[in-house]
Amino acid sequence: MAAAAAAGAGPEMVRGQVFDVGPRYTNLSYIGEGAYGMVCSAYDNVNKVRVAIKKISPFEHQTYCQRTLREIKILLRFRHENIIGINDIIRAPTIEQMKDVYIVQDLMETDLYKLLKTQHLSNDHICYFLYQILRGLKYIHSANVLHRDLKPSNLLLNTTCDLKICDFGLARVADPDHDHTGFLTEYVATRWYRAPEIMLNSKGYTKSIDIWSVGCILAEMLSNRPIFPGKHYLDQLNHILGILGSPSQEDLNCIINLKARNYLLSLPHKNKVPWNRLFPNADSKALDLLDKMLTFNPHKRIEVEQALAHPYLEQYYDPSDEPIAEAPFKFDMELDDLPKEKLKELIFEETARFQPGYRS
């Protein structure tokens, strides 16, 4: 834990890192770190609560700039109880001085990944967590956004079992017609939660990839272990087919990539493993919904509104309290091709509203 900075004593240090967030945020305490930044909790002297502050230093890398800009653009436009918001952003007053960006968010005690390492969940908890994931996802999908990296560590939890989806750095506007060349190379989302079509096709992607990830998360809540822990690309596919069985001819016809289709045709026939054999203690309604989410063919996979209306979630289902976005989200430009200098300018502009004396 960093010592509390005395008023006016300059930035606090946390594990050798400068955290320049005073005077409003003090009493910093280390939480963890990701690929390009550290997260601390801090005391907000204005709202009198502890908050989470993520320090991001992305400006050396085009990919990190892209992810940072995506996350900020999306989260500043989203407003939903099951999606983490941005409360404040701290950065230098000029673009030349801006080396880091500090993002202030609600402090959540833990995440689903940490929880599943230590606790076996009751059916009631599984049901409530799944409902909140789908409630947040309904809003995301209504904005025409794909999260693309749903996994237990991106689901934040607090002691009252509130759940918030975080990390929109890989999110995209849904565009089933656009052929994202190089899709697989830039697709760094965790393999275990990846839909089979991501490994088999490169053309376009749809909201059904997020539903697949939610199915993987439900299976993990039922058993405290990942359902498809593939060691590499082909191993991942083999794990999936080992449980779902061989795809039907109709399902194979959806695979545009001939090499991928021929690979699947070359494999020995596998039978589907019954879900109640894998999860003998699970609620039968939970397994019915799991089956509809972990469907090989993305066109037959359940959609988020149908999933919310499934009998497993009937005690929570309330369409009048499951809000959607006001308007579909649009990125003005494809960020993939922009140089990091341009992305830095866009991050600077996007964060201006939090600067003292800002006038829109």
Rank of each mutant, 00 (worst) to 15 (best):
G8V: 15
V18K: 07
V18N: 08
V21C: 12
V21I: 09
S29A: 07
S29P: 04
Y30C: 04
G34Q: 02
C40V: 11
C40M: 05
Y43N: 14
V51T: 09
I56W: 15
I56T: 13
P58G: 15
F59I: 15
E60G: 00
L75D: 03
H80S: 02
E81L: 08
N82S: 11
I89V: 12
A92I: 04
A92S: 14
P93E: 05
Q97W: 05
M98W: 01
Q105F: 15
E109T: 02
D111T: 08
T118G: 14
L121W: 02
D124F: 09
H125N: 13
Y128T: 03
F129N: 09
Y131Q: 07
L134K: 09
Y139G: 09
Y139P: 12
I140H: 09
A143D: 13
H147Q: 15
K151W: 05
P152F: 01
S153A: 07
L155Y: 05
L163V: 07
K164L: 08
V173A: 02
V173L: 12
H178S: 05
T181K: 09
T185P: 15
Y187R: 04
P196Y: 01
M199V: 00
L200Y: 11
S202M: 09
G204F: 01
Y205M: 06
S208E: 01
V214H: 12
G215V: 14
G215I: 07
C216I: 08
A219W: 11
R225I: 07
H232Q: 12
Y233A: 08
Y233K: 11
D235L: 04
L237D: 05
I240A: 03
Q249C: 08
E250M: 03
E250Y: 06
D251S: 09
L252S: 09
L252R: 11
N257L: 07
N257K: 14
K259C: 02
A260S: 15
N262P: 07
L265C: 09
L267R: 00
P268I: 01
H269P: 10
K270F: 05
K270E: 01
K270H: 06
W275C: 15
D283W: 02
S284N: 11
S284E: 09
S284I: 06
A286Q: 06
D291G: 05
F296P: 02
F296V: 11
N297T: 15
K300D: 08
K300E: 02
I302N: 15
V304A: 12
V304M: 04
L308K: 02
H310K: 03
H310G: 04
L313V: 09
D318Y: 13
A327L: 12
K330F: 02
E334F: 05
D336A: 12
D337K: 04
D337Y: 14
P339R: 11
K340R: 13
K342Y: 12
K344N: 14
F348I: 14
E350W: 00
E350Y: 06
T351A: 12
A352I: 06
A352S: 13
S360D: 06
